[in-house]
C-alpha cells in the first residue's frame, strides 16, 4: 500500500472517532496538535487502526509512538 493511501485511510478513522468533518494528518503531529485527541479517543484510535488494517500492535510499540508519522511507520511495518 502506498503511503498516501495509508494516510488517507488513517485520516478517515480519525474523522470518525474525533467526529470532525475533515482532518489532515502530517508526520510531526501529536495529540497536542489535534482538537479532541485526548486519552479516551487515543484508546479508540489505536484500536480502530488495528481493526481497519487487520494488524496487531504490541503494547510496547504503541507506548513508544511519538507522533503520527511513527504510527504510519508502525502500520507499514506490520503490513510489510
Amino acid at each position: 500500500m502506498e503511503r498516501k493511501e495509508l494516510v488517507s485511510r488513517v485520516e478517515e478513522i480519525y474523522k470518525e472517532i474525533l467526529e470532525v468533518d475533515a482532518i489532515t494528518l502530517s508526520d510531526e503531529m501529536t495529540a497536542n496538535d489535534v482538537e479532541g485527541w485526548d486519552s479516551l479517543t487515543h484508546s479508540l484510535l489505536i484500536n480502530q487502526v488495528q481493526k481497519e488494517f487487520e494488524v496487531k500492535f504490541k503494547l510496547r510499540e504503541v507506548i513508544s509512538l511519538k507522533n503520527v508519522g511513527e504510527l504510519f511507520n508502525l502500520i507499514e511495518s506490520k503490513l510489510a
Partner: peptide, 28 residues
C-alpha cells in the same frame, strides 16, 4: 516517560475491549 494520560490510554486500549471503550464516549 511521556504524557501519563497517553501512556495510560495505550494500556487501556490494549486491555479493554473496543465495545467497552466506545461506551466511555457517552461520558466525554
Amino acid at each position: 516517560e511521556g504524557s501519563s494520560s497517553v501512556l495510560r490510554s495505550a494500556l487501556l486500549a490494549h486491555y479493554i475491549p473496543m465495545d467497552n471503550l466506545k461506551k466511555a464516549m457517552a461520558f466525554r
